[in-house]
């Protein structure tokens, strides 16, 4: 889909450049032209030709041409009913400032990353939990707003496996900048494996005092499958396998989680997680180490 739009862009760009050059050249030529003073009748005739030709016909034809190409492309982007295999459904919910991703058919939930099968249409049902956000993965296709109280649907299809960058594109407050979605397109088999692994993932609770700290301080907002059921902040069940932390603030290298726990208000000022200054640093690093192990 994005490829069609790219072709459209280059065609329009070429045409627009041509028009710009021609109009500017005409203008400059008209300014420098040294001809004999024109009589009224000739001027009138010439004028009419300019107005009808340049003013009326040129824009009308260009615009008609554009619609002729553009509307069919738009038509193909519509989530129309399909005859054969039904598109896969994924729900994406925008939050200030992170993404909640749900696979309703398998009950899998994740955050700030979106796993897709390749070569198969995917219908994304998007909405928002607070303000208006907008879902956009530039390399895969157009964008669609995520609006509280409404469900919007966009159909995408990845044609090859790979990683794509998505970013919220409707201004949504202080950290609009850091609302990045990591999109991973897998071959059908890999995708099914990933989904399966997530479904079967067994997480044992963190033992000891750090476990209590996690329950008391983190579990009310964060969900870790089988451990805590918070739903106000990103699901952490597979946080160790994500490529980024804080919806695009840090790359998820060893140690990055601990840094995030200590410095998240400097790294992403205004985010909803409270400071952890009152917690024992040892407990924090135990929690961070444990979170890093959470992978499907």
């Amino acid at each position: 889909m994005a490829r069609e739009v790219a072709i459209l862009w280059w065609a329009m760009c070429a045409f627009a450049t041509l028009v710009l050059i021609v109009v500017t050249a005409l203008w400059v030529h008209a300014m420098r032209r040294k001809g004999p003073q024109m009589d009224a009748a000739r001027a009138r005739q010439l004028t009419l030709r300019w107005l009808v030709g340049g003013g009326l016909l040129l824009p009308t034809l260009s615009v008609l041409l554009l619609l002729l190409f553009g509307i069919p492309i738009g038509h193909r982007m519509l989530p129309l009913p399909l005859a054969g295999e039904q598109p896969m459904r994924i729900e994406v919910i925008g939050h200030q400032w992170w993404w909640e991703v749900r696979y309703p058919d398998s009950g899998v939930v994740t955050a700030n990353q979106l796993h897709l099968p390749v070569g198969r249409p995917v219908d994304l049902d998007v909405t928002s939990a607070d303000v208006i956000h907008s879902f956009w993965v530039p390399r895969l296709g157009g964008k669609i707003d995520m609006i509280p109280g409404r469900d919007n649907r966009i159909r995408l299809q990845a044609d090859q496996a790979g990683t794509f960058r998505g970013q919220c594109s409707e201004f949504c407050g202080t950290q609009h900048t850091h609302m990045i979605l990591d999109v991973q397109a897998h071959d059908e088999e890999d995708f099914v494996n990933w989904l399966q692994a997530r479904r079967e993932q067994q997480i044992s609770a963190l033992p000891g005092p750090a476990g209590e700290v996690f329950d008391a301080h983190c579990g009310q907002c964060h969900r870790v499958a089988g451990v805590s059921e918070g739903n106000r902040a990103p699901d952490l069940s597979d946080v160790g396998a994500r490529s980024m932390l804080g919806a695009g603030v840090l790359s998820n290298e060893p140690g990055a989680l601990l840094r995030w726990l200590h410095e998240h208000q400097q790294l992403k000022p205004g985010n909803a997680m409270p400071l952890h200054d009152d917690l024992d640093p040892d407990h924090l690093s135990t929690i961070a180490d444990w979170l890093e192990t959470l992978r499907p």
Binding site: L67, I71, P72, G74, H75, L78, P79, L80
Partner: peptide, 11 residues
């Protein structure tokens, strides 16, 4: 009004 001839109404 031309697009009424080429697009489904409510999608």
């Amino acid at each position: 009004a031309l697009p009424t001839l080429s697009l489904p109404p409510c999608l």
